[in-house]
């Protein structure tokens, strides 16, 4: 079981976009892609909040992943984003409204 809650706030417009995904309920090709990107992101080894202060108008991203055994939240911004997270973020953005 894996659930992902993704949220992007900030930006010059200050508009929030978000999505909540249950990978068990998704088409298998999409869930397979997301599981791979989660693995490649090293998300479970990252600090919860690598950013301490935001730069004006940059986006702030929050990802919370819940499995049967662990829950991990990472909050990062454009200027503090670990490169390993970027492919996962870009994929999650395609699922937001």
């Amino acid at each position: 079981m894996m659930q992902i809650i993704f949220e992007r706030t900030g930006g010059i417009m200050g508009r929030k976009v978000s999505v909540s995904l249950d990978l068990d309920e998704m088409p298998s090709d999409q869930s397979t892609t997301l599981r791979r990107l989660v693995d490649e992101s090293d998300l479970f080894t990252l600090d919860e909040e690598p950013i301490k202060t935001s730069r004006p108008d940059e986006f702030i991203y929050t990802i919370t992943i819940t499995t049967k055994t662990i829950q991990q939240t990472v909050r990062a911004s454009d200027t503090s984003l670990p490169e390993s997270l970027r492919p996962l973020l870009n994929e999650l953005l395609t699922h937001t409204g």
Partner: peptide
Amino acid sequence: DKGYDNAFWDG
């Protein structure tokens, strides 16, 4: 970036 709907000042 691709599809980046924003502008910002990074310091």
